[in-house]
Computed example of a mutant assay.
Amino acid sequence: MTAGLYLFAALAEILGCFAFWAWWKQGASALWLVPGVLALAAFASALALTPPDQAGRSFAAYGGVYICASLGWLWLAEGEIPRASDLIGAGLALAGALVILSGAVRAG
């Protein structure tokens, strides 16, 4: 369940941030901000449901998932294939997230 929450949070955050990016950087209509704000609210709500008792620990563990999801967005939505260095960095970040979560689960 935790992995699903983090994945949902990452997708919502990326979609929300992309809506703002499209408006600000690509000249999209200001109406893009409405689903952007809703997506960012969904992101915050999902992240608040994750198990760690401390927000900072939950956010730190989420960071690894977000990095991986962002590279997925880079590839699938933007058509840019991640480099080997991107994948290695994402793997390290995800491994760090797993270490953080394993400590939080054992302590809780």
Rank of each mutant, 00 (worst) to 15 (best):
R83I: 04
A44V: 12
G103E: 02
S58G: 14
T50D: 03
A55L: 13
E78K: 12
W32T: 01
L33Q: 05
A44P: 06
V65P: 06
Y66T: 00
S45A: 14
L87A: 02
F43R: 15
F59G: 00
D86G: 02
I100N: 05
L74F: 10
V65K: 00
A55E: 10
P35E: 10
S29L: 01
L71Y: 14
L47P: 01
A44E: 10
I88Q: 04
G56T: 07
G27R: 10
A90K: 01
L76A: 11
D53T: 08
W75Q: 13
L40N: 13
L94F: 14
E80Q: 15
L92I: 13
V37D: 01
V34M: 09
S58N: 09
Y66F: 15
F59S: 11
G36L: 08
L33I: 14
L49W: 12
C68D: 00
S102L: 12
A42N: 00
G64L: 09
P82I: 06
A61T: 04
L87C: 05
V65D: 06
L87I: 07
L87H: 02
I81E: 05
P51E: 14
L76C: 09
A84L: 12
A48Q: 05
L94G: 03
S70G: 15
S85D: 12
S58P: 02
L74H: 10
Y66E: 13
L98M: 14
L71V: 14
G103N: 03
F43Y: 15
P82A: 08
G79N: 09
P51K: 06
L76S: 08
W75K: 08
